[in-house]
Structure formats: structure tokens, C-alpha cells
Design a protein around this nucleic acid. Structure first.
Length: 553
DNA sequence: TGTCTGCGCGCC
DNA sequence: AAAGGGCGCGCAGACA
């Protein structure tokens, strides 16, 4: 594989060819405007892995110029993983500029101007950083896993940029119609829409509070308590438990008010343009390796507005999600054959029932969720002993992760992403309280903080490995879709339009729907083999070919 | 006027 | 139905 490290020096780009061993083998220099042509030509000629400081600084402009690349190494993301991995020798990563790499932030997707005027990334040496990372990988006892993780993370960065570039097809007219039906016409000066005003009158009357603003939790709580309702907060779930004529309109108000503020007209104004919702995704934005998003609330698009996600004319959406990803990942990473056997069923929870482990599906679900999240109370606590008996390796893995976290140790995912050291409450308590506390009070607090950190590390190993499976799925699917679709640019071929932890939405020409479904399934198979080799754990998908996202599932 | 925190709620 | 883990966001209210 040819490796080319790209580096910007003012208005000039340097392309450093690396020989097989990683030694510099030649440098080309050209004006920044020539970059898309350079990359496009090389990409068409030979397989290349482009190495650059940060995908968000290079790829949007290439995409805007119509250039799609096959693979890259994102040094910023790789650096973040290696710096925290228990399997990377930190001495090999050390350099004067290490702290600057630590602090390097992705750039927000603005208009794809080719490079901002001043950028801290310009002072970094990507050739040297790449060499340090390669040295750390070469010396790692988990080299294979880390190399796969870095490749998958870098592919994720490409996917994220491409999804922002192409966008999710979004019908503003459908969305507006939905808002108007539920809330009334758009209010002129940001006031409350008629639907909310109508509910507000009923709420104020029912609680005899003519000036009440239900958007203020404190004011609302005082009003409810004054009316004699036994509530300690104003969450919907709490309010549903009490009986009062003001509660139904209040619950309705809260639901519609949420729609208005989170995904109302101003959301449309901000995030939907020319028939596309351009979400911004941040690969590696969560410590576990999950993606974050910073604008448009991409990872929490409510089902309520999904009818507005409609494929273009003659196109379709292929929506696929993995059933019970995390329990399956747990079975695989712990090599728990009994749990993998239950996972052979399309419904893992039903598989547990059929194996006689638990009486019913509901118990299976709360039991497994409790094992992965650290639930100890109620139903899930009661299920734990039998789960531990029947699935000793799986339960043992999460229990050990929890104990390690309680001791303040680092845990890691299957491929080697490390957890952060304890922060916040844990560290604070330890520091404040010092050695064994004299009184019961502080000790309780310390234990509580330790257990909370144990719940975090317990979940980290599963959530993080689940994110690794999803990255491998995405990476393989991305290339399969590209090969499927002729010779045009990205937006004219089947392409990934959305990604939500364990769900993808592909926008594809309708006549390719069947082929896309096959590729989505094949990519899931690839991901399973990459992570778990021949260990027999399945990742069945629910796949739907639909016009609108709302019609899936 | 701007910045910060807590609350509540959407998603997985 | 949530619980137990991870997020982002908008508002209200407090404080500078």
C-alpha cells in the first residue's frame, strides 16, 4: 500500500511519499488549489492510503471538488486512541509536539473553503507523528487489534465527512405540514403557536395559576405542589403517576413544546437546505468510541419527525439496524459459547428463554441490560445469579471490568481502546477523603463514587466494542456501496446518509435496493469476522427498503 | 450582556 | 415503564 502524507505549508501542500518501511521516498510540492486534482489522479492510478493531520481539515474540500478517496489515516483520531491505549508504549509517542496533538480539535464544517487562514495544525509535523504512531504500533502486544481500530476509526472519519457532504434527504414541506398539524401555523415573532396557547389556557385554569409558565421547571413544581400533588420533580414520567385534571394537558404541552424547541421551524431553518439535512458527526467524540454530533441533534432525531426523511424521486432509503448489538458483542468478546448459542436466534432474549435460562423475554431483557449497565435493584438484580451461572464468561467479563473500575484501573475494548482514568466524583472523593475515612458518612460517599465509576467501566467495554463493530460495518459498507454504483460522483451512487450507533440509512437508486440490502448484510458479516474471527456469534439485521425513514421498523 | 449550571427529554 | 451506561440541546435562572 502506498502511503502519502499530506502537509500544508501556507498556500503550498507537500505530499510526502513513504517507502514500504515508512522512510521518506520523495516530496511533491504544489499550490493548495491543485490538491483535488493531485489526489484524484493518484487515487485513480494506484491504491493509496492518504495520511493527514485531521480529516475535517482536508476531506470536505476534496468532496466539494468531486474527489472521493478510498482510505486514509487520521492522525488526530489515531493519536487520541494510542495515547489512551494500555497497549501503546507512551514513550514511543513522546515528542515536543505531543501536547499539541493532544489538544488538536476538529474544525466545524463551514463552507468548504480550502483551509482556514491560521490553524494550529499547521505547526504540527504529520510525517514525524505518523512515524511515532507506526513505531508504537510495531511495538504493541496488540498490534493487530490496534491497527484494525485505527483503520476503522479513520474510515469512520471519511464516512462522517461524506454524510455531511451528501446529507440526509429531508422534505421541509412534509416537516412543516407535520408541525402545522400538531402546533398550528408558524407564529410570527417567536411566540407560542396556537396549539400550545390552547393547552396553556387549560393548564392555567386547572391549576388556578393564571400566570403560570410551564416551561419553567421551578415555577411549575411550586404550582403543582401548591395544588397538593405529591411530586418532587416535573418529569413526564412522574406526572403520569398522579391524577389531576391539569395533568393531561400539561403532558401534551410538554410533548409539543419539546417538538417546537428541538425540531420546530427554527431547526428547519438552521439545518435543512436544498432538500438535505446536513448533520455534523464527530467520530470518536465519545470516550467509548461512539460518535458524537455537534449540531442539529443528529443522534437524537425523534421518531416524530422521521416522516420528513424521504428518498428522492426514483430513489429509496435502505434502513438497517442490528438487533441487540451489545449483548452479542459481549458474547463474542468473552467467547461465551452459551450466550452465543442464545444469540443464534434472531431474538437473543427469546433464545435465552428457549434455553431455559429465564422464564420470559422481559426478564431476559432487564437481566442483560442490568449486567451491561450495572443495575442491581429490582428485577435485573434478581436475574443476575442465574445469568452468572449460565453465562459465566460473559458476566465474568463485565463484572471484572466493574471491579477494575472500582479500583481506579483502566479497562479496554476488544481492539484496545482504553478507558479514561477516573475523573469527577471518583477522583474528587479520593482526594478529599484521603486514606480510610474515620466516619461512616464520607466512606459511603466514596463507595458510591467508586461504584458509579465501576458502572462506567463495566459499560465502557461493551459499548466501546459495540462501537468498534459498528465502525467495521460502516467501513466495509462504504466501500461496497461505492463499488455498486457505476462511475458517477458520490451523490449519484448509493451512499450512506445517516448513522446512529447501530443503525444505518443508505440513500440509493430504487433499482439497486436489492443489491444494497445484500451489501448491508455482507458488511455485517465482515464486521463480525474482523472482530471475532471464527467464533460463532451472529449479528442479524433488520433491514427495510422504504420511501420514508418513518416506514422502517 | 454574556457565561454557567440544572433540569428535562430526545436518541442509542 | 424505568432501572443501570453513553450523549446533545434548549430553556430558565443565577451570577458576573
Amino acid at each position: 500500500m502506498n502511503r502519502v502524507v499530506l502537509r500544508r505549508r501556507e498556500a503550498v501542500v507537500e505530499a510526502h511519499d513513504l517507502a514500504d518501511g515508512g522512510a521518506p521516498a520523495g516530496v511533491a510540492r504544489f499550490a493548495a488549489e491543485e490538491l483535488p486534482a493531485f489526489v484524484g489522479d493518484r487515487e485513480a492510478a494506484v491504491p493509496v492510503r492518504w495520511v493527514w493531520d485531521d480529516t475535517t481539515r482536508w476531506y470536505p474540500a476534496l468532496l466539494a471538488a468531486g474527489v472521493r478517496i478510498e482510505r486514509c489515516t487520521d492522525l488526530r483520531l489515531a493519536h487520541a486512541i494510542l495515547r489512551r491505549s494500555p497497549f501503546a508504549d507512551q514513550a514511543l509517542l513522546a515528542a515536543d509536539e505531543t501536547a499539541a496533538w493532544d489538544e488538536l480539535q476538529p474544525v466545524p464544517v463551514a463552507e468548504p473553503a480550502l483551509f482556514p487562514p491560521t490553524d494550529p495544525a499547521d505547526r504540527l509535523d504529520p510525517v514525524a507523528e505518523h512515524a511515532r504512531q507506526q513505531a508504537a504500533l510495531a511495538a504493541s502486544p496488540r498490534r493487530q487489534g490496534l491497527e484494525l481500530l485505527l483503520a476503522a476509526e479513520s474510515s469512520g472519519a471519511l464516512v462522517a465527512a461524506e454524510m455531511t457532504h451528501t446529507g440526509m434527504p429531508w422534505r421541509a414541506d412534509v416537516h412543516e405540514q407535520l408541525l402545522t398539524e400538531l402546533l398550528g401555523p408558524r407564529p410570527v415573532a417567536g411566540g407560542r403557536p396556537a396549539g400550545l396557547e390552547w393547552l396553556l389556557r387549560q393548564i392555567r385554569e386547572a391549576f388556578a395559576a393564571p400566570g403560570l409558565n410551564p416551561d419553567s421547571p421551578a415555577e411549575l413544581l411550586r404550582t403543582l405542589q401548591h395544588a397538593g400533588l405529591p411530586v418532587g420533580d416535573t418529569r413526564s414520567w412522574t406526572l403520569e403517576q398522579v391524577d389531576h385534571p391539569g395533568i393531561p394537558p400539561l403532558l401534551e404541552y410538554k410533548k409539543l413544546s419539546r417538538l417546537l424547541t428541538a425540531n420546530g421551524w427554527s431547526w428547519l431553518d438552521s439545518w435543512v437546505r436544498q432538500g438535505r439535512f446536513r448533520a455534523t458527526f464527530l467520530p470518536g467524540g465519545v470516550v467509548t468510541g461512539r460518535w458524537a454530533s455537534n449540531g442539529g441533534g443528529a443522534l437524537s432525531v425523534p421518531t416524530q419527525i422521521r416522516p420528513a426523511a424521504v428518498a428522492d424521486e426514483g430513489w429509496c432509503l435502505v434502513v438497517a439496524d442490528v438487533a441487540q448489538l451489545e449483548p452479542r458483542v459481549l458474547a463474542g468478546m468473552s467467547a461465551d459459547t452459551a450466550m452465543a448459542e442464545a444469540a443464534r436466534a434472531k431474538d437473543l432474549y427469546q433464545g435465552m428463554v428457549d434455553a431455559g435460562v429465564v422464564p420470559g423475554r422481559a426478564e431476559a431483557k432487564v437481566g442483560i441490560l442490568g449486567a451491561m449497565y450495572g443495575g442491581t435493584r429490582g428485577e435485573s438484580g434478581r436475574m443476575m445469579p442465574r445469568l452468572a451461572r449460565r453465562y459465566p464468561r460473559a458476566i465474568g467479563l463485565v463484572e471484572e471490568a466493574a471491579r477494575a473500575g472500582e479500583r481506579g484501573e483502566v479497562v479496554h475494548t476488544l481492539l484496545g481502546r482504553g478507558s479514561p482514568l477516573p475523573t469527577g466524583a471518583w477522583a474528587q472523593r479520593e482526594a478529599e477523603l484521603g486514606e480510610p475515612a474515620e466516619s461512616a458518612g464520607p466512606r459511603d460517599e466514596r463507595d458510591r463514587a467508586r461504584r458509579a465509576w465501576g458502572r462506567f467501566t463495566r459499560n465502557f467495554v461493551v459499548q466501546g466494542t459495540g462501537a468498534e463493530w459498528a465502525l467495521c460495518w460502516l467501513a466495509d459498507l462504504r466501500n461496497r456501496l461505492w463499488r455498486l454504483g457505476g462511475t458517477g460522483p458520490l451523490h449519484q451512487r448509493p451512499h450512506l446518509a445517516f448513522f446512529l450507533h447501530d443503525e444505518v440509512v443508505v440513500h440509493a437508486p430504487a433499482d439497486l435496493a436489492g443489491a444494497v440490502v445484500e451489501e448491508v448484510r455482507a458488511a455485517a458479516g465482515t464486521a463480525g469476522r474482523l472482530l471475532f474471527g471464527t467464533f460463532p456469534v451472529d449479528f442479524p439485521l433488520d433491514v427495510a427498503v422504504v420511501r420514508s425513514w418513518a416506514d422502517a421498523g
